[in-house]
Design a protein around this nucleic acid. Structure first.
Lengths: 203, 203
DNA sequence: TAGATTGTTAATCGATTAACAATC
DNA sequence: TAGATTGTTAATCGATTAACAATC
């Protein structure tokens, strides 16, 4: 079953995004060599990764864009729409709630919570900001499995605890802090300072 | 010289962030074991990584927080302030320009550009949005080496080209597209859809 | 058919872990 | 001193690459 290494899984969304762009250009078939040049990932790597999920390629031609796109969406479980809960509606949370890139890629911000009375009740994007005190119940009742944390650092771990308690199993964390969560909960980090510092090392 | 593997470099900002939090808690010394529990990185890994930069630890006690923090800042070149150019002042660019986490960690948004006449001339954070047509010259004149791209996907590659032409050598890209740049330019990606899809694979 | 490109194997390369002497 | 923890070595583990028979 899940004998597919995480490094491979972590590249699948990148392949998917590239294939969507390639389809938008009107191409119906793409070779691993061509993909390699577009992504900076070796052609051998791409073929090996994709072969773990089935034989989608055709010798002499390459990979059919539409069929491979569909297959990747299926394997990544984004051939459906995931409801997402957002915690923290500051500048960043606001931007996330209005971000146009989610709906077409499997995600919908379904609820947003904040603790600031000034924000509670206001609208952002398609939804109304709710009181974080009711978050656990609301998340649980709606069976939401994906959360985004856009609170200040000092509120992030508590937000994570509440979300995990409420059943969330995947967390996207923008706060500049490592989150401690149970083993069956996934966390991905998007603190912008980290990648910036990774680059200044080389400057 | 640069015989330090990139995987190691990529963990340094994470150690630095943790040490800053640990210092804020008032601790002056921390063992690799304790750090391991906080970060989910093995103690052996942490010791091996840190030993590549010098012998900061004391047997029996652990690592002195202040000295190690300072050393990491130095190695990452964030013991100075980097001026950053921001391209694209939509919701996300707006949030980035006002983000409080940059100044204390080595970065200052020094300029912001957009092509929308409605936005040009408005203020965001500490700065005024400028016309993207003058970006190359302004960036070059100020010797800016770090850029952040928060434009729509279809404008991102052109923004990158302009920035690279103007001398930028490190790019943080929020647009959902792979950027093609010369070998001596670093790019890090922060498209939020990618990490979300990495997690839904396991749901 | 000839040319191109896949899927896969074996070889290489690199990263992580376990273990322990050195030492604070 | 006794206990704890480092820095480092050797062993393990895993990921990437090169190469090519199979085949569209």
């Amino acid at each position: 079953m899940s004998e597919i290494p995480h490094v491979v899984v972590s590249r699948l969304p990148i392949y998917l995004r590239a294939l969507e762009n390639i389809a938008a250009e009107g191409l119906t078939c793409i070779s691993s060599q061509e993909l390699s040049e577009r992504l900076g990932i070796s052609a051998a790597q791409i073929r090996k990764d994709l072969s773990m999920f089935g034989e989608y390629g055709k010798q002499g031609r390459g990979y059919p864009v539409a069929a491979l796109t569909e297959a990747l969406r299926r394997h990544l479980h984004v051939d459906r729409m995931w409801d997402v809960v957002l915690v923290g509606v500051g500048d960043l949370g606001h931007a996330l709630a209005r971000y146009k890139g989610f709906p077409d890629h499997g995600f919908r911000i379904a609820m947003a919570f904040d603790k600031d009375p000034e924000k509670i009740g206001t609208r952002v994007g398609e939804i109304e900001v709710e009181d974080v005190r009711y978050m656990a119940r609301r998340v649980q009742e709606n069976g939401i499995l994906v959360g985004m944390i856009a609170t200040p650092a000092n509120a992030a771990q508590e937000a994570a605890n509440t979300l995990v308690f409420a059943g969330v199993r995947a967390l996207l964390n923008y706060a500049p802090i490592h989150l401690t969560v149970p083993d069956d909960v996934r966390v991905e980090y998007l603190d912008p300072v980290i990648p910036l510092q990774r680059m200044t090392y080389y400057l």
